[in-house]
Nucleic acid binder design. Structure first.
Lengths: 165, 165
DNA sequence: CCTTAACTTCACAAATTTCTGAAAGAAGCG
DNA sequence: CGCTTCTTTCAGAAATTTGTGAAGTTAAGG
């Protein structure tokens, strides 16, 4: 079978990847539609798709696309672009941006830390439970710093391995 | 009001911490009951509670405790113990074990990597999309190694700061 | 301005998940 | 062995989440 659109992509392999990768994301806690939209973008040739293309490829309503994209944009996993001189919007994965977002759980960590800090205070730092919470808190604070430097190393590693990308 | 049990803990502060920390865990994707049980254990004096104590403190049925504990045990966040010579079971947070479990997403990473590898294969490593997936795959492989060494450093840091715990 | 092509919001139906009471299943203890 | 105490399983009620169609909103293009 000859392939016409794109370079050696048939819709079926793409869809197979999209669904299986999305399934993993869902299992890790992402909303289903967001996961599917995201996977579709990842697997697209340019890393850019319009709302219509997404709805078409994934067989979902414009409303579903809208909801998914809102979530993905909020979490910085995709960015929205406006094709100049058109009301058509395009959504893009930035290749090197999205997994930064993925590990960028800083806001989450901060909230955990806040909850733990309150726990230490109200239970008392000199009680066994208080000490347990304090240690947990220390762990998250440690992680927060480490993750930052880990991403630093990744960028370096990436540059060496993939060039400017 | 004088406090009798434990050292300066009143049920209300404990409950307040439990619920607010559990809420964070839920937001991060954990089942509600599992999160509440886990938080209760974290905030308990000895890090150990029986099924009855949990049900009582959290106002949930034995069935709910059972389900929550099964999940937590599977993910290695708590361990089950049998009080010798009793059918009563006790559940424990290990203090230094649970956050290892938390970051020990190795199985998850492996599955993501598998899905990506398949994507690279079927889309072709020489296509733009294939390259994007390959880079993502490289990222996860990088992370996997880094997280391991990060935990190594944490153990060291922890020992220095908290002693044997 | 009016039309039209998009995207978004909203109310609701459907599917899924969650928690419970009740019954069944283990295991100590007499 | 049978009784008693605790845990687990299971079916179903209740609550929550999810995706859709339809109406609403915005902005381009005549």
């Amino acid at each position: 079978m000859t392939e016409s659109a794109g370079a050696g992509r048939d819709a079926e392999s793409v869809s197979k990847f999209v669904e299986s990768f999305a399934a993993q994301l869902v299992e890790a806690g992402m909303q289903r539609m967001a996961a599917r939209v995201f996977a579709a973008l990842l697997a697209s040739d340019k890393g850019v798709l319009t709302s219509a293309e997404l709805g078409d490829q994934l067989q979902i309503s414009p409303a579903a696309v809208s909801g998914a994209v809102r979530y993905l944009a909020q979490t910085h996993m995709v960015s929205r672009e406006r094709e100049p001189g058109s009301r058509r919007e395009r959504y893009r994965v930035h290749g090197d941006q999205w997994y930064e977002a993925l590990t960028n759980r800083e806001a989450v960590l901060k909230r955990w830390e806040a909850a733990l800090r309150e726990g230490v205070n109200s239970l008392g730092g000199d009680t066994p439970a208080g000490r347990r919470l304090a240690e947990t808190l220390a762990f998250f604070e440690f992680i927060e710093v480490e993750v930052a430097s880990m991403m630093e190393r990744w960028r370096e590693h990436r540059e060496k391995t993939f060039g400017q990308g």
